[in-house]
Design a protein around this nucleic acid. Sequence first.
DNA 1: CAATCCCATTTTTTT
DNA 2: AATGGGATTG
Length: 725
Amino acid sequence: MREKILSPLNPEQERAVTGTDGAVLVLAGAGSGKTRVIAHRVAWLLQERHLSPHNLLAVTFTNKAAEEMRDRVMALLNKDRLPFLWIGTFHSICARILRADIGRLEGGYNTYFSIADADDTLGLVKRILKERGISESNFQPRKVQSAISRAKADALDAEAYAEKARTYFQRTIAPVYREYDRRLRESNSLDFDDLLFFTERLLEGDEEVRERYRARFLHLLVDEYQDTNRTQYRLLRLLASPRCSVFAVGDEDQSIYRWRGADIQNILDFQRDFPGAEVVKLERNYRSTRPILEAANTLVAHNENRLGKNLWTEREEGEAVTLFAAPSDREEAAYVADTVERYKAFAEYRQMAVVYRTNAQSRSFEEAFLNRRIAYQVVGGIKFYERREVKDVLSYLRVAANPLDRISLLRVLNVPPRGIGKVTVETLEDMARERGGTLYGVIREEAAKGGLPPRARVALRGFVDIMDALDRKVRAGKDLGALAEFVLEATGYVSYLDSLKGPGPDPQDRLENIQELVSAMRDFEIRQGGSLAEFLERQALVSDQDSLDASGTDTVKLLTLHAVKGLEFPIVFLTGLEEDLLPHVLSQESDAEVEEERRLCYVGMTRAMDRLHLTWARRRYVYGTLEDRRPSPFLLEIPGEMIREEAGVPSAGGSLLEAAQMLERKAAPKPQRPFKVGCRVHHPKFGFGIVLSTKGEGEDLKVTVSFNRHGRKMLLARMAKLEVL
DNA sequence: CAATCCCATTTTTTT
DNA sequence: AATGGGATTG
């Protein structure tokens, strides 16, 4: 057994696995076997150090990674179950902790709390802004949402935020934040940040709970440490007693979630935070050939803010990395599809991946693959559980599980339309406020009697009857699939979908999505034996990667650079290597942002085991208009001799030299089109801003600018005294 | 109250 | 290109 755990490891990996009981930081380069190190460490602790599974907590980045980790450990130990071993994402672990003890926090939450997703919370922000007459053009809901999220990551609740608010923006949204939290509270709902933030407050404020977990967890193992945020860091410190061993694995070169609050300083400061920590570097790469690794190493070496390491591989021989400059995005897709077909002679589809910066780029590839009948799967994108029809059905179930969930209740009250209109809803909300009762309670009262017009009352009655019947089925312990089917049937959802023809998604597709939901619920019931509440929680916390089908159908994977993290493929197409796409237009304000984009590129390159193909397009459709594109500056950071240029279509020359010239040309002043999307401008009255888009030309050139202080304005270029900076 | 039409805007990445 | 919101109409 001991052999099984240690023999597959190289000396550095073994040192990490068998390392001290103090803190350990494993700096694991791409493809150096970091997941393996955690799995083997867990197995080692259980087997050789005789720890109980009860004493370990392993944190992964996705639920899928958690499952794989558990499988690996079980295989190493020849066990077919390990029920007391906690493995999960920060969010799912926090949800679990809160289910047990959220009642000990102030705020009146109970164990049936719902988890509000990004869509729910955005809707909530919009409603609040509208109610308060705050202009959405100056306070974009998205910005407000992320400010609230940021505040929670900094452990600032609404009160603390209001106190600290200085800028006009902060002072305006402080009450919005307060109202947002109030609404979540009355809905017995938590957003993603709350899951972490509440757990922090619970552990910090409640000694008994804190000591319970501290006494339990003797080892904390954290994967992807470079992408933890400040709250997660504080949680770690709260959970770790002085005698607990913290084992963190990560790679600062793969930190790509700064925009979500991840703080690369966590990993850079590990040795300071955990004095005496042992540091193990894993620099041997088992994945890629030398040409691939060399190109990737050279690129990422341009970053300043890194610990630095030197990845090497024994796979000396290998095909050169190629670069293809396509005349257009269509032809880029055609090139990829053609190449996929050629590989198909000796490789499987599943061994190939097409990677891009933005989800919108998947389209041209989907079209090309559809044409050539290449089987593919888009990972992520518009997520399954965010599709409207799926959310509608889920919302019924959410109300059944948590009747206080007002957000879900308002969503389905009149879906499919049953005659409960805006006026009625407003009346009901007023009544709830006056009587100090819950919205759901008021609806039930008014359905039975009350002062509403008869038509509205009958409509309410219909809704309440459905919910009552659903409730009975939940209590009777009906299986999950049956619950979903009941919702469909009782609400007449299928014929409602039929009536939705016209623009928008094909009703047939929507129907299939719903059927998919029903079978996902069945599957969950059979495989995990889970309850409705467990299904809803799981569902709320799935990641893009969780949708990667394990069923093993042979498909080419299409996915973003973020979604591809942690995966590997024999053949990788890294596409859209263009200026303003990678690095993205919206991410070049600071060096830190550009460095993150460079890491993103590095992550994409290092996914490839045998073949890496880079592509870009000279012209591309962006929001429906054809744009001229330039190659990504990152391409010039990789020496020409490390890249072989593909001729591809004869008319397309496209050499690195040419790329260099184009970039030089760009550096020189460009008089003909001064207002480029993304460039900074100054206006005498509105101050500094960024050009969002342009319209028309010559005399009629209009420029849309997002000003720092004054929001979005559309200006006539020849009138406004706009100065390009 | 619901359906229809028109206009404007757009996420870059997601637990 | 596609989607969502707002206003308008039946």
